[in-house]
């Protein structure tokens, strides 16, 4: 596997917030390049003038009325929280935003 592609894998893993071990990275690079090789087949077709499909059916968007319904009780909001403090979710320091 080329160093370039390993670096690419590292970049994508960072974007996706996935920590990968070095073995995982190697394996991932191999598998990803094989999968992307197959995926590149879509580029063989001429799609000039073809609209992309984001939704298979075009039905009018449903719009909700601006009405309030009861929210979840706060115990339920926090019931799965890994770390909480008072009625907040607690997270570690956020000073580091971008690693790159």
């Amino acid at each position: 596997m080329s160093d370039d592609f390993i670096r690419e894998v590292e970049h994508v893993a960072r974007l996706a917030r996935l920590s990968l071990s070095s073995e995982e990275k190697e394996l991932m690079a191999d598998q990803l390049s094989a999968i992307l090789e197959t995926a590149r087949k879509v580029r063989e077709i001429d799609t000039v003038g073809i609209e992309p499909t984001a939704h298979v059916f075009s039905i009018p968007a449903f719009l909700r009325e601006d009405v309030i319904y009861p929210s979840l009780p706060v115990e339920k909001v926090l019931q799965n929280a890994p770390k909480k403090m008072k009625s907040y979710f607690r997270v570690p320091s956020i000073t580091v935003i971008e690693e790159e």
């Binding site: 917030r17 799965n80 890994p82 997270v91 570690p92 320091s93 000073t95 580091v96 935003i97």
Partner: peptide
């Protein structure tokens, strides 16, 4: 790892996420 589910130890937000 913030609101529910598995949450690893992390001393900053990036390491918690990743």
């Amino acid at each position: 790892g913030v609101r529910y589910g598995y949450s690893a130890d992390g001393d900053n937000i990036i390491s918690l996420f990743s």
